[in-house]
Every structure is written in structure tokens, then in C-alpha cells.
């Protein structure tokens, strides 16, 4: 309900600035996407056109209200599925490979190929990997600084699973929620961040 009100408020605000009838550009965008793109494998036009609530709200030019942001966080937190066996840490060595792999989900990728997390694309994680991006914060010494409590495990899991649950309109993909990474892959990334033996914490 709150979300709906935010949308209405935005539409009303837009209405104030333009006196004449404005063309529905959103409808034009949908029309163009449908006519000008090609679906292939898992990369389907429908997913591109039909934004979910988060994508829709986060596509606006301008800041969202605190209420809208909070409602995104709440709804997304509910999507987080923690590991059924209560085991949070996998193999950090496999985690490095996943963090290095930027493939998956592109129209150029082979359909059915395993997706990576491409974590190094945006984060510093280990000292060894020097070609890291700066879109997100440095995660070097992540576990060393935070310890190995269950709280930290769950917080970190939720962050990887659905980044929108902690920061609404975050740039980070919702790796678990969107099905980019499997539960096992997330465990391996958890180990990369939190295992005391992982180079992240050396």
C-alpha cells in the first residue's frame, strides 16, 4: 500500500511540472524494447520489460522517500532463504574462482553455462587480486574485522542473497533471489569472506 502511495505521489509531482498532456514515455520504452531487442536463452525481453517492484522504483531519476526505501528493504528481506543445513561456509578456494568469473546472463554467454559472481569487478577482497573495481566498498579483512558469529553469517548471507534487503536500490545484483548463484556458490563466497584461512583475512 505504501508503495502505491509513493507511485501516486511521484505521478502527481510530475503532473505539476507539465501543464500540457505529456506523452506516456514509459509505454514508448516498452514498445521499443519489444521491437528492438532479441531474446536468447535466459536473456528474455520479458525480463527486460517487466520490471519487478524494486527495479521499477529504482529506475527513477531522483531520490526515493525514506518510506519507499524502507518498504523495499522490508519486502526484500522476506525473500532471503538461509541454508537449510545451517552450514554457511563452503570452500574459499572455489569462492575465489566464483569471484573472478564475470560470465553468465549475457546474451553472448552459452545458454546453461555456470554464472559467476564477478565480485572482484566491484570490490577489493584479497591482497593478491590487484585488478579490483571500486563500485562497492573494500571487503579486504572482512571476516577478521567482524568475527564469526551467527549474526554476521546471516547478515552476510542476506547481503549476497538479496542486497536490496539492506540497501534499497543498491547497485549490487540480488545473487540468490535472482537465481544467479546457487546456494553452494554463495557458501563458497561466504568462506572467501569469512573463513579465517581465506586470503581475505590474512
Amino acid at each position: 500500500m505504501k508503495k502505491l502511495m509513493v507511485l501516486i505521489a511521484t505521478i502527481a509531482a510530475a503532473g505539476c511540472s507539465s501543464s500540457t498532456v505529456e506523452k506516456d514515455y514509459d509505454a514508448e520504452v516498452v514498445r521499443l524494447i519489444n521491437s528492438d531487442f532479441k531474446s536468447k536463452g535466459s536473456v528474455q525481453i520479458e525480463k527486460f520489460v517487466q520490471q519487478d517492484e524494486v527495479q521499477k522504483l529504482c529506475s527513477q531519476d531522483g531520490e526515493l522517500s525514506q518510506d519507499a526505501l524502507a518498504s523495499i528493504r522490508d519486502s526484500q528481506m522476506k525473500t532471503v532463504k538461509y541454508p537449510a543445513d545451517d552450514q554457511y561456509l563452503g570452500d574459499w578456494e572455489k569462492g575465489i574462482k566464483i569471484a573472478n568469473n564475470g560470465k553468465g546472463g549475457q546474451f553472448s554467454d552459452k545458454p546453461g553455462s555456470v554464472s559467476g559472481g564477478n565480485c572482484f569487478g566491484c570490490h577489493q577482497i584479497t591482497k593478491e587480486e590487484v585488478a579490483f573495481g571500486t563500485m562497492g566498498p573494500s571487503l579486504y579483512q572482512y571476516g577478521k574485522l567482524r568475527g564469526n558469529s551467527k549474526e554476521i553469517y546471516q547478515y552476510t548471507w542476506a547481503k549476497i542473497y538479496n542486497a536490496q534487503a539492506s540497501i534499497a536500490c543498491s547497485n549490487m545484483p540480488r545473487f540468490g533471489h535472482a537465481g544467479i548463484l546457487t546456494e553452494e556458490q554463495i557458501k563458497d563466497l561466504m568462506a572467501l569472506l569469512l573463513d579465517p584461512e581465506s586470503p581475505t583475512n590474512k
Partner: peptide
């Protein structure tokens, strides 16, 4: 329409042009 497309976040990764091109001094790798 171009502006809308620039801000349009969608797909498996929730990306849009805006994801990578709306802040200063950022890099990928």
C-alpha cells in the same frame, strides 16, 4: 525515451546504464 532507457534497471542483475555511470571515480576492475 533515451533518458528513460538510461535509468531503466531490469534483467537478472538489476542493472541499467545508471548502475555504472552515475557516480564519480568508480571503476570496474
Amino acid at each position: 525515451i533515451g533518458k528513460k532507457l538510461f535509468f531503466h534497471r531490469a534483467g537478472s542483475h538489476d542493472f541499467g546504464c545508471v548502475t555504472c555511470h552515475s557516480a564519480d571515480n568508480k571503476r570496474i576492475r
